[in-house]
């Protein structure tokens, strides 16, 4: 029985590890400037903890194999050196690993969340609601209109709660259901939610940030590749959560300008 256990643990471990090593299922291609640091961090962690995983399971298998020896003359053996070396090894090795991960990882985190957005960022306003995202561009005047929750009306397409009757800046705001951005230009999003908590997740951008009702949260990134990607909601927001999504279209600068013009005309 013990030998069977040892074999089972080792087989399970090797199968599990092989899919990680082969990258059968893996992160999608990275399209942001801050993504590579995160990928690097993840791969370092994968290597380090993968080795720990492998070592832990294999040692367990080995020890159980040995412990299943039925020879009646065999005496039990204590672990050489007792507990103290193990405790010391765990504190030192894991401690070093932790400090390294924290030190390196804080940089990757900081680039996304602590560094301020570039001054020349393209500012886009995002409204999340059950169960869609809407995006707002300032329009030709470069000014966003104010937000008035009491003016929100999905039926007339006023998802943000603009008040064009009294607010001139709001009149030319462009509101669309897809996020269209130029490539290689810093983007600054202001996230706010109309109703409950939502989240803005673009796997390719390595960006995930919750929307919190009542506060406005900035998110900045720069996309490095053109293409069409999905923005999905990752914070449980109600029955349509699974279907809450929008498309991110990264365009060349001229294409973007043209698109924006066509929207402003409407």
């Amino acid at each position: 029985m013990g030998k069977l256990f040892a074999v089972a643990v080792i087989v399970i471990t090797l199968i599990s590890v092989s899919f990680f090593v082969m990258h059968t299922w893996w992160m999608p291609v990275d399209i942001s400037t801050t993504g590579p640091a995160i990928d690097h961090q993840l791969e370092e962690t994968m290597t380090g903890s993968g080795l720990l995983f492998l070592a832990g399971q294999l040692v367990l298998g080995l020890f159980v194999w040995q412990a299943s020896n039925k020879n009646p003359a065999r005496k039990i053996k204590m672990f050489p050196g007792g507990a103290s070396p193990l405790v010391a090894a765990a504190i030192i090795l894991v401690g070093i690993e932790i400090l390294t991960l924290t030190f390196v990882g804080t940089k990757a985190w900081g680039a996304v969340n602590l560094a301020p957005a570039a001054a020349d960022s393209l500012h886009i306003d995002v409204q999340a609601e059950q169960f869609a995202f809407y995006f707002r561009y300032a329009g030709p005047d470069g000014q966003f209109g104010g937000l008035h929750p009491d003016k929100i009306d999905d039926g007339s397409g006023n998802y943000f709660g603009l008040d064009p009757a009294n607010d001139v800046a709001a009149r030319d705001d462009v509101v669309v259901g897809s996020l269209v951005i130029p490539v290689n230009r810093p983007i600054l999003l202001s996230l706010h939610s109309k109703d409950v908590g939502h989240s803005f997740y673009v796997p390719e951008l390595r960006i995930q940030q919750d929307f919190v009702p009542g506060i406005e949260i900035p998110v900045h990134f720069t996309a490095t590749q053109t293409g069409k990607f999905e923005i999905v909601c990752t914070q449980l927001c109600g029955l349509g959560h699974y279907n809450m999504k929008a498309y991110l279209q990264v365009m060349s600068e001229p294409d973007y300008e043209q698109w924006l013009k066509s929207q402003e005309g409407q």
Binding site: L42, M46, F53, L60, G105, W109, Y201, Q208
Partner: peptide, 28 residues
């Protein structure tokens, strides 16, 4: 013995999620 095995498996993935930078991608 099974406990030891699954405790290792479950503990290891904690290394990823404890790091804010990786959690950006893996959260939720």
């Amino acid at each position: 013995l099974g406990f030891i095995s699954v405790f290792i498996s479950g503990g290891i993935s904690g290394f990823f999620l404890a790091q804010p930078s990786i959690d950006i991608y893996l959260h939720a």
